[in-house]
């Protein structure tokens, strides 16, 4: 599901997740704080290269995931760039329904472009974490970072159950579709409603069964597992420092050159 398969195939799979978390947060926050087109583009390029070279991701996979947020970003950034402008000077303008003057001003175009580049940089930074860290490692890392235990356990259980329920929902959907259950709006609604309620009832049953199974094996309220065997990965801190330094240098250079 999603980034999960890539995370298990990643070359960084056995590296301690905590340095990966700090690396991602550092690069991500600098990219968002910098508020600059060039830093955004640099982060996008640098993190994509790191994902491919260091993480061993396939280029096709990475491009596929980079396309996911595009739907939101293109719409979101077009609405920033194109908007009602009144009498302001515009690069391009038209009259909506013959009355309201809409268009692109230089200022809005710059803002739309900035948001787009910044967001793409930030997304690629987030992918460094999610494409190289399996979720189970991440939840264990959260526990080591003193996130409340109940919260972490809920995350672990939910993560496991997602796959159970998604498999079940998928099988029911295939069965319904093969019996023409999604022909027309009314019938689709009915089939979908039955699917959801069945999955829901079954998930409650399954929850009860899981609890009984746990209890019969001596469950006293918390699931403790051994941490994985990680390589320490301290070199990631160095990489983080280097990437952050590049980002900051680019930011300073940009501020100097383009007042």
């Amino acid at each position: 599901m999603g980034t999960d398969r890539c995370a298990y195939l990643s070359r960084l799979r056995n590296v301690d997740p905590i340095p990966k978390v700090w690396f991602t947060l550092a690069v991500l926050l600098i990219c968002v704080f910098a508020d600059s087109v060039v830093v955004g583009l640099f982060t996008l390029a640098a993190l994509s290269v790191l994902n491919i070279v260091v993480g061993g991701q396939r280029t096709g996979d990475l491009l596929h995931f980079l396309k996911v947020p595009l739907a939101f970003l293109i719409i979101g950034c077009l609405t920033i760039a194109i908007r009602p402008i009144g009498q302001a000077e515009a690069l391009w303008a038209f009259r909506l329904l013959g009355r309201w003057r809409w268009g692109i001003t230089a200022e809005n175009l710059r803002l739309g472009l900035l948001v787009f580049c910044k967001a793409m940089g930030a997304v690629s930074a987030m992918y460094f974490l999610s494409l190289n860290t399996p979720m189970t490692d991440l939840t264990m890392a959260l526990e080591r970072l003193h996130v409340p235990k109940l919260f972490v356990e809920l995350m672990e259980l939910i993560y496991r159950f997602i796959f159970l329920l998604a498999g079940e929902a998928g099988r029911i959907k295939v069965a319904q579709e093969s019996r023409l259950g999604y022909r027309g709006f009314r019938r689709s609604m009915h089939s979908m409603g039955e699917l959801l309620s069945t999955v829901f009832v079954r998930s409650l049953h399954r929850g009860n069964r899981v609890f009984s199974a746990l209890e019969s094996r001596g469950y006293t309220g918390s699931l403790t597992t051994l941490p994985g065997q990680y390589t320490p990965g301290r070199w990631l801190y160095g990489l983080a420092a280097a990437t952050a330094a590049c980002q900051l240098l680019i930011l300073i250079a940009e501020r100097r050159l383009l007042p």
Partner: peptide, 9 residues
């Protein structure tokens, strides 16, 4: 706890 996790999933 288990029921809540099922609901989240």
């Amino acid at each position: 706890k288990v029921l809540l996790a099922m609901c989240g999933a």
